[in-house]
């Protein structure tokens, strides 16, 4: 692996809430590097800091201390180094949610193309890219259907298509298989693995789903805000 392959580089990141006796350390000096093509899992009990770390990498939450680099760009070093964090997320990060979080008023195709619309793609090209992704994820036949009429597996694949639409190299997934049965969970993991390999992206997933632990390259345990790699 070369330094160019490092997509997520977190150094000495800490996050605490409150002060004095009420102080809670959600993250304590966490170091983490994730390379292109890697699929890693963040594990740990509730309150261990998994979601906090995911939010820090997703540029949603400012750490108290530390440095964060995403795809070669330093984005945090004691303070945010960029003011356009939403644009950064749009360009570099794809999110997959436990509950899909598809916009209920858009069709499956529109849920994917909305990201491209926000990124400034022309509408026709955005629709074509959305169809391409939906076909790739084998839900192209449901392109004109609203989320309420999609099955759990279909909705999750549409959510994955949305996460990939703008070709981000960092994909953050929060319990991506929690709402799926065992068979579909394996299919989703196969898909994420395929994407990581083909698009040279990295996948960081928070999960409690033991059935899919063997599908990750690394299992990273968090305990009391500290990182313990297994």
């Amino acid at each position: 692996m070369t330094p160019d392959d490092i997509l997520v580089d977190v150094k000495g990141v800490a996050k605490h809430y409150g002060t004095g006796e009420t102080r809670v350390d959600a993250l304590r000096s966490v170091d983490l590097r994730v390379h292109a093509g890697e699929v890693i899992a963040l594990l740990g009990p509730s309150g261990s800091g998994k979601t906090t770390l995911l939010n820090v990498i997703g540029c949603i939450l400012a750490p108290t201390a530390g440095r964060v680099e995403l795809d070669g760009d330093a984005v945090f070093d004691g303070k945010w180094l960029r003011s356009d964090l939403r644009r950064l997320r749009l360009d570099k990060i794809g999110f997959i949610f436990q509950a899909h979080n598809l916009l209920p008023f858009l069709t499956a195709e529109e849920n994917v193309s909305v990201v491209l619309d926000l990124a400034g793609w022309p509408a026709t090209q955005g629709r074509a890219r959305a169809r391409e992704l939906l076909d790739y994820l084998e839900v192209g036949h449901r392109a004109k259907v609203k989320p309420a009429l999609l099955s759990g597996g279909e909705a999750q694949r549409v959510a994955i298509a949305r996460a990939l639409a703008n070709r981000p190299r960092i994909i953050l997934a929060d319990e991506p298989t929690a709402a799926l049965d065992s068979g579909r969970a394996q299919l989703v993991m196969d898909l994420l693995r395929k994407l990581a390999t083909e698009q040279k992206a990295c996948i960081i997933a928070v999960t409690h789903d033991e059935k899919i632990f063997d599908r990750f390259d690394r299992l990273i345990h968090l305990r009391d805000g500290r990182l313990v790699e297994a």
Binding site: G58, I60, R86, R87, R89, L90, D91, F95, F97, N101, L103, P104, V114, V115, L118, A119, R162
Partner: peptide, 13 residues
């Protein structure tokens, strides 16, 4: 609000 949060998360200005 949840849809708005999603829009913000995926990068909507």
């Amino acid at each position: 609000l949840k849809q708005i949060a999603t829009l913000k998360l995926i990068g909507a200005p």
